[in-house]
Design a binder for these strands. Structure first.
Length: 269
DNA sequence: AGCGGATGTACAG
DNA sequence: TGTACCTCCGCTT
């Protein structure tokens, strides 16, 4: 779940529920107790996402930098704050709304300079209006690394995770092991555009759909399969099963310690 | 009850 | 390249 679309959705939700009002802040779990104490009573100015990083702007107090990592989640609710259940790193609330952050890899107060440093380490994020594929292409077109590795490198392109990687490469018919520098500009632009569309659909739907995403009702081939994670996908976690388009066997492999899935027939060398 | 695995990253070596 | 770390869920016993 926590790929770029999740974080952009979280930014929008924080903005809607909390911006412009002073919030109560607490860390029932205690791991962010000092930060929560500083935040308590301050006003959320804005929330923004860059790739998988979430930034909450509490102007006077500083920025909260959140990275969900593999396990982190945020839950929102309305009305009175429920009694804490389990480990809650950060809870924000107003009289009307509350949020609970659990299990983040990162939750810390940072200065504007530190925030800029985080952003400087990230490649363009297709979900941000300021993003263009050119700077990513500059890296991709010079790299001997596989396009599969490049898509997960947040310094090349920010926000793509393991599910979107597998699905976008499948949809574009690109072999994941092809070196970045062997891609054509046309192929990269198509990959970028597809990722941007899929991510945007993911923000709206709140889940990863790549077979029938909201912006594109037609499926490419056979009927979709609902993934364990609640979305419809072509190849992610489908190793050994038949390809929904050609019927061939989906392959699975480990590449740089991450699970990779692809259809050798639809994504030829 | 206990284990293994996961959509991510950062570090060590 | 391996390992540690966040935490939860589903599977096995």
């Amino acid at each position: 779940m926590p790929e770029g679309h999740t974080i952009h959705r979280l930014a929008a939700d924080h903005q809607t529920r909390f911006a412009g009002r002073p919030v109560r802040a607490a860390s029932p779990q205690g791991k962010f107790a000092d930060g929560a104490a500083l935040l308590h009573g301050s006003v959320l100015h804005a929330a923004e996402a860059h790739g998988k990083h979430l930034f909450l702007d509490f102007a006077a107090t500083g920025w909260v930098h959140v990275h969900l990592g593999l396990y982190g989640t945020v839950r929102f609710g309305t009305g009175p704050v429920p009694a804490p259940v389990g480990q809650i790193r950060l809870r924000l609330s107003t009289p009307a709304d509350w949020s609970e952050l659990r299990g983040p890899a990162q939750c810390r107060l940072i200065t504007p300079e530190e925030k800029a440093a985080v952003a400087a380490r990230l490649g363009p994020d297709p979900l941000r209006s300021d993003a263009r594929p050119d700077s990513a292409w500059a890296r991709v077109s010079r790299s001997r690394s596989s396009v599969a590795a490049l898509l997960l490198d947040q310094q090349v392109i920010a926000g793509v995770g393991n599910v979107y990687r597998a699905e976008a490469l499948f949809r574009q018919g690109i072999d994941p092991y092809r070196p970045g520098r062997d891609l054509t500009r046309r192929e990269w632009d198509a990959l970028w555009d597809d990722l941007a569309g899929l991510l945007r659909a993911g923000v709206r739907a709140g889940r990863i759909d790549t077979v029938r995403p909201a912006h594109e009702p037609e499926a490419m081939g056979r009927p979709p399969r609902v993934d364990d994670h609640g979305g419809e996908v072509y190849v992610y976690r489908r190793a050994g099963q038949p390809c929904l388009v050609c019927g061939g066997e989906i392959r699975g492999a480990t590449l740089a310690a991450r699970n990779l899935f692809w259809c050798p027939a639809c994504q030829p060398r």
